[in-house]
Design a protein around this nucleic acid. Structure first.
Lengths: 338, 338
DNA sequence: CTGAAAGCGCTAACAA
DNA sequence: TTGTTAGCGCTTTCAG
C-alpha cells in the first residue's frame, strides 16, 4: 500500500513533515508544502483515515441519526448536512431508526460508541437522558435538529410563531371560520411540534377575538391520505362549514386540497388552504405555506458542530437556535366567499 | 479510555483472547468466550473501530453513493441498505453527488480512497471507467443498483419487461390509443432507463399490432409538474385523443391524473393512467402501477457485498441480477370508453 | 485453547 | 522549520 513514507521519500522530507504539510500546512514552509502536495498528488496518495484517526483522535466523520429517511424533511436535512460536511472534508455516517426499538438500542449502545464519529446530529429525535449521557460521557458533541432536546443545542423553527403566521394570514384575508388539521398525540416522534402548532393557531385566533371551536380541529397522521379524510369531515358538514383550513404540514394541506376538490369545492374560492413546509410539491399545487428550510437546518447543524470541534470552541450563545421561516402566498388562499 | 486491556484484566485473560472472543469466537473455548463477553458487557466496552480497522484491514463500513437523496427511489434504496447493514454490524457512509462535478470528483478521488469503506454501492449512477478502475485498484468490491454498470455486478429491474407489462395491461383492457410519458434524453442520470421503458412500451404495442404513434410520446423530467404539462398536451388535442397513458414513473402518472381531472376528464372512465414504482403516494391516488421494490434492492445489494467480502466468496452467477416487479391494479385503469 | 509481541499507518511531542 | 520516535488500541502470527 502506498503510505506516507513513500510520499516522504519522493519529496525528500520526513513523514512528520508530510503529515504536517497535508493537514493544514502549519509549521511548514510554503515551498516544502507545495513540494509535498505535488508528490502526494503525483503518487495518488490519500491518507488512511484509520491510521490518522487512531493517532490523532479525530475521525473526520459525523453521525447523523434520523427516524426515517423517506420523508421530505429528513432527507432534506441529511442532504444539507452532507453537502456541508463534504466541504469540510468530513464523512457522514447515517443511522436510521426505522428498525424499531432494537435498532435504536444497537445504534446508541454499539454503533455510536465505537469511536467512529466525532459528533452526532440527531434529527427530530427525542433522546432519552441515558442516550444523551452516553454521548456526553464519550465527549461527543451532539446537536439536535427539530428539537428541543434538553441540555443540547438544538436548531428549531418556532412552531408557535409559524402556526400563528399561517393563521394570521387567513385572518387577514377575512376568514373567521378557520379549521386546523394537526397531528395526533400518538406522534411523539415529532416532539410537541403538533401541539405547538395548534397552540399557535389558537393564539392567533384569540388575538383576533375569534373563538377556537373544538369541532374545527381534526387530528391526522401527517400524511396526505390522513388529511384527506380529515378535510372531508371538516368540509362535509351541512352547517357552519369552515372557509379555511390550516394544515400542520404541506402534505396534509395537499390532501385537504384534493378532498375539497372531490367534494366539488373550488380552492381558494370556496375554501382556502395553507400548510407548513414548502414541500417540493407545494408549488405545483399552488399551495400557500409557511416555508421552513430543512436543508439549511442541516447545514447549520454542521456549522455548529464544526465550531464545537474546534480546539477552542467559541462560547455558545444559547442552547436553542431559531431557524428562519417565511410566509409564501400562492394560489390556495384568498378572501372567503361573501 | 476503556480499552481491550481492561477487559482482559477483568476477565483474567490476555488481550489476544479478548479480541478473539469478541470477534466471532473462533479458537476460544465457549467458557472463556462467555466470561469475556460478560466482562465486556459489564464494563460497557466497545471496540475502537479505528484500532480494529488499522490492525485488521476491515472497516465494517460500506460507502453508498447516490445522485440525490430527496427522491423516493434513492431514499428507499438507502433505507433498505442501511437496515441490512446494521444487522451485519456495518456502518453506512453516505455520499451524495448533488454538489455537482466537483463534489463528484472529491468523492471519487478523495473520500472513497481513504480506506474508510470496505465496499461501495452505487445507486443509479453511471460511473466512468476511471472511477470504477480506481475502486477496483483498491480492491474494493462495487455493486450497482439500477445499473447497468459495465463489468460490475448490478441489481436492476428489467425496464423493458416492466414497460411491456404496464402497456400490456392497458392493451388487455381494450385500449389501442395509448400514450407514453417518458424521460427526456437529458436525464442521463438514469442510464437508459427512460429509453428502455419506451422500448418496452413500443414492443408491447407492436406485439399487439398497434401502431406506435410519434405524437403519442411526450418527454418529461420525471416530476409531477413536468408530466402534468405533458399530459395536458396529450389530452387536450381535439382529435385522436389517447384513451390511456403509460407514465414512466408514478410521480409522472399522478401528474397525469391531475392534468386529466383539470381538463374535466374522469379517470379511469375517460382516460386510464398507469405508472411505474408503487410510490408511497400511489395507493392514495388509486394509481395502477408496476411496483418495484427499492428497499429490497438496497438489502440485496448489501447481501451481494457481504458475500463478496467473505474470505472465500461464492462464485458470482452473473453480472446482472434481475430484481422482481409486479403489476398492481388499482382504480386508475379500466376499459376504454365505447 | 491461550499468551506474547510485532506491527497496522499515521500524528504529535520533543529535539535539533 | 524539520526530523526522530514513541505511541494510538487492536489483531494476528507464532509459540507454547
Amino acid at each position: 500500500m502506498l503510505g506516507i513514507a513513500d510520499v516522504a521519500r519522493h519529496a525528500g522530507v520526513s513523514t512528520a513533515t508530510v503529515s504536517r504539510a497535508l493537514s493544514g500546512g502549519f509549521h511548514v514552509s510554503p515551498a516544502t508544502r507545495l513540494r509535498v502536495e505535488a508528490s502526494a498528488a503525483q503518487l495518488g496518495y490519500v491518507v488512511s483515515s484509520n491510521a490518522s484517526s487512531l493517532a490523532s483522535g479525530r475521525m473526520k466523520n459525523i453521525g447523523v441519526v434520523v427516524p426515517f429517511l423517506n420523508r421530505w424533511f429528513f432527507a432534506s436535512v441529511v442532504e444539507g448536512a452532507q453537502q456541508s460536511l463534504q466541504r469540510h472534508g468530513y464523512d457522514l455516517t447515517l443511522y436510521n431508526l426505522t428498525g424499531g426499538a432494537s435498532a435504536r438500542r444497537s445504534v446508541f449502545e454499539h454503533f455510536l460508541l465505537r469511536q467512529r464519529v466525532d459528533a452526532v446530529i440527531a434529527v427530530s429525535l427525542e433522546l432519552t437522558e441515558s442516550e444523551v449521557a452516553r454521548l456526553h460521557a464519550l465527549n461527543k458533541p451532539l446537536v439536535g435538529v427539530g428539537g428541543p432536546l434538553t441540555g443540547v443545542p438544538t436548531l428549531t423553527v418556532d412552531d408557535l410563531a409559524v402556526a400563528r403566521l399561517a393563521t394570521e394570514h387567513l385572518i387577514s384575508l377575512g376568514h373567521t371560520r378557520i379549521a386546523h388539521i394537526g397531528g395526533d398525540k400518538a406522534l411523539d416522534l415529532d416532539f410537541n411540534l403538533p401541539t405547538n402548532r395548534r397552540f399557535g393557531y389558537e393564539a392567533a385566533l384569540k388575538a383576533a377575538a375569534i373563538e377556537a371551536r373544538q369541532d374545527y380541529f381534526r387530528p391526522a397522521d401527517f400524511t396526505m391520505a390522513g388529511a384527506y379524510q380529515a378535510a372531508k369531515q371538516l368540509l362535509g358538514r351541512p352547517h357552519g362549514r369552515p372557509t379555511a383550513i390550516f394544515a400542520a404540514s404541506d402534505e396534509m394541506a395537499i390532501g385537504s386540497i384534493l378532498a375539497a376538490r372531490d367534494l366539488g369545492f373550488v380552492v381558494p374560492r370556496d375554501v382556502s388552504v395553507i400548510g407548513v413546509d414548502d414541500h417540493e410539491q407545494a408549488a405545483f399545487f399552488g399551495l400557500s405555506t409557511v416555508a421552513q428550510f430543512p436543508q439549511q437546518q442541516g447545514e447549520k447543524a454542521v456549522e455548529v458542530l464544526m465550531d464545537e470541534l474546534r480546539p477552542r470552541p467559541a462560547p455558545r450563545i444559547g442552547l436553542n437556535i431559531n431557524m428562519p421561516f417565511e410566509l409564501i402566498v400562492r394560489a390556495s388562499t384568498a378572501r372567503p366567499p361573501e
